[in-house]
Amino acid sequence: MSLTTFIQHILTGVSLGGAYALIAIGYTLVYGILLLINFAHSDIFMMAGYFMIFAMATMPWPIAIPVVIVATVILGVLIEKAAYKPLRSAPRMSIMISSIGVSYLLQNLATYLFSALPKGYPTIAPLKKVFQLGPVSASLVTFLTPVLTLILVFILMYLINHTKLGMAMRAVSKDYDTSKLMGIKINQIISLTFVIGSTMAAIGSILYFTDRMSVTPFSGTLPGLKCFVAAVLGGIGSVPGAVLGGFIIGISETFLTALGYSTYSDAFTFMLLILILIFRPTGLIGETVTDKV
């Protein structure tokens, strides 16, 4: 592998990792607050892909993008209200099953509405513009993804660490019951979490699918699982952790594919998951907690 191809792969990997990181944030925030693996998150991401296809059919991209983000946020919050809120006091397994049910519903709905055949993803012209940096060439989206990811993460970190709402979010994820007693409006905070998660998923979806060119009802599943792994890898509940995990998985996947092991790249992600769960279940930058007996 020459230096040029190496840099080329790093660029592709970082870009994929950026998209993964954005999706992973949705998983990590929801898990942090509800202790729920939101299986439907991958399908929210997939639906955002379809929203973009339909939005771009009738409007120019600068309008389409905010429309898609709003639609995705509405979908995310709607799912929370309809499928998770009624089960607030139910055992955790029930909520997880409910999220699997929503995932199943969204996939079947997408198959029904848009058919199982791949639909072409619209081209956002400026994103596709190819840049030449010395011998390395890549489209704008490749450069933009990691930068945009980092900007969004910094905004999010500011929100979480320096605002009142962010403080409430941290309190809820630290101790659900006590924060309720402290007068924090739990439902509001949970909705906010889904708003943030869905926004990130919508942006991630645009960046991801622009590189992939097509969407199917099942194209969310595998990236979704990988992003959950990314969240666990970095330390579930932690936003910087999710970003770190996203980049690690994006880069390693790109290199494995480049080396000709593309069938094993998915397997590798899950190997990574099992290894991290054995040796460092709290993730790379998660904090340790002792179970109380």
Binding site: M96, F228, I274
Partner: peptide, 27 residues
């Protein structure tokens, strides 16, 4: 390794295992 994990991690780890098997079979 996997059965020591908390219930929801177990779900993801076994789901991952299932995908690994599928990837290996079709490789």
């Amino acid at each position: 390794p996997v059965l020591r994990l908390k219930s929801d991690y177990l779900a993801i780890a076994t789901l991952g295992f299932s995908e690994i098997i599928r990837a290996i079979i079709s490789s």
